[in-house]
Structures are given as structure tokens and as C-alpha cells.
């Protein structure tokens, strides 16, 4: 239990810092933005109480907001995402009690389900963040493009990260 807490604390710090220092500066083709730190939200154990999930997500978003100077944008998107997490997981994996490991991963969910789950979460997050952003300037075609490109980029990045993480463990 303590080990898991420490692991997630380290993951939290590393992901948020990586997002703040590196990934916030990336914007491929002026469209695709990688949202690296949401991996933390995706990986939080299913057994963790909903309140905690929402709180951690909110904090992660808030800290990224601090670094990126995007007032509350990521915080709001993260909060929304954290609520969506459980329903999305249930959608692809209805038998929650059968989970060997409470953390959603390739191992515990199986490749197919995990990839679907990951993609849906990333797509949701991209949609949230760009919709929130669209409150300030709205350009539908560009909005859709940005959502699609960012989803793809983040999805690929996080798959890669997954690969690295599962090997190191």
C-alpha cells in the first residue's frame, strides 16, 4: 500500500514536471499538443475512492495550469476526466471485481481493453481542453483538427510511456 502511494507520488511529480518543462512547449504543426501528465489520472487504482481521484486530478491540472499560465483550464478538464474515468472503464470492462490488479494497465485489463480505455480517456481530455479553450476563440474546423491531432499524439506518447513503465517494473 505504502509502496503504491510512493510510486504514485513520484509518478505525479515526474509527469507534472515533464508536462511543465517539456510537453507544454510542444505543439506539432501548430495543432497537436501532448497531454502527458493525464497518464497519472489514467493509472490511478480503480479501488481508490472517487473523492481522492477527483482531488488528485484537480491538483495535477491546477499545477500544470500554474506552469502554463492557463488559468483553471487543465484543472477543469482534469476534474471532468476524473469523473469520466469510472464509466469509461466500465464500458469496456464491466466485470470490475475480476481485476487482478486495481491499477488499469495492459496486464490487468488486457491489451485490447486497455488501448480502448487509454484512447477514450485521451480523446475525452483533448475534447474537454479544447472545448474549454474554445470559449475564448472559436474556430470549428481547427478545433476538431486540434482535438484529433492532440488525441493521436498523446495516445501514442502514452502508449510508449506504458511500454517503458511495464518494462521497468
Amino acid at each position: 500500500m505504502t509502496k503504491t502511494v510512493v510510486q504514485f507520488a513520484i509518478l505525479f511529480v515526474v509527469l507534472v514536471l515533464a508536462q511543465a518543462i517539456m510537453f507544454n512547449n510542444i505543439c506539432l504543426f501548430n495543432l497537436a499538443v501532448p497531454f502527458f501528465f493525464i497518464y497519472f489520472i489514467i493509472r490511478l487504482p480503480v479501488t481508490l475512492a472517487g473523492g481522492w481521484v477527483i482531488t488528485f486530478s484537480f491538483l495535477a491540472g491546477l499545477i500544470v495550469d500554474m506552469f502554463a499560465n492557463t488559468q483553471g483550464m487543465n484543472a477543469l478538464a482534469c476534474t471532468l476526466l476524473s469523473v469520466m474515468r469510472r464509466p469509461v472503464l466500465r464500458l469496456y470492462f464491466p466485470r470490475e471485481d475480476e481485476l487482478t490488479n486495481p491499477e488499469p494497465s495492459i496486464k490487468s485489463l488486457g491489451m485490447e481493453v486497455y488501448v480502448k480505455y487509454l484512447f477514450t480517456m485521451v480523446a475525452l481530455y483533448s475534447t474537454f481542453i479544447f472545448l474549454i479553450e474554445a470559449f475564448s476563440f472559436f474556430d470549428p474546423v481547427r478545433l476538431v483538427l486540434r482535438i484529433l491531432c492532440s488525441t493521436l499524439l498523446t495516445f501514442l506518447l502514452l502508449l510508449g510511456l506504458d511500454n517503458v513503465m511495464s518494462r521497468s517494473r
Binding site: A49, G51, I54, T55, G72, M73, L76, T79, S82, V83
Partner: peptide, 24 residues
């Protein structure tokens, strides 16, 4: 409690996002 937290955070985020006062 989860939903109250959720609403609280959403309100805070929205407040940060949409208010233009100096606290933001």
C-alpha cells in the same frame, strides 16, 4: 461526497477560468 467534491472543483476551475478579477 464525491459529487460535491466534483462540483466544488469544477466551480473553482470555472472561477479561475472565467473571472477576470485580480485573484485569478
Amino acid at each position: 461526497s464525491k459529487w460535491f467534491l466534483f462540483i466544488l472543483y469544477v466551480v473553482i476551475s470555472c472561477w479561475l477560468l472565467f473571472s477576470n478579477n485580480p485573484y485569478q
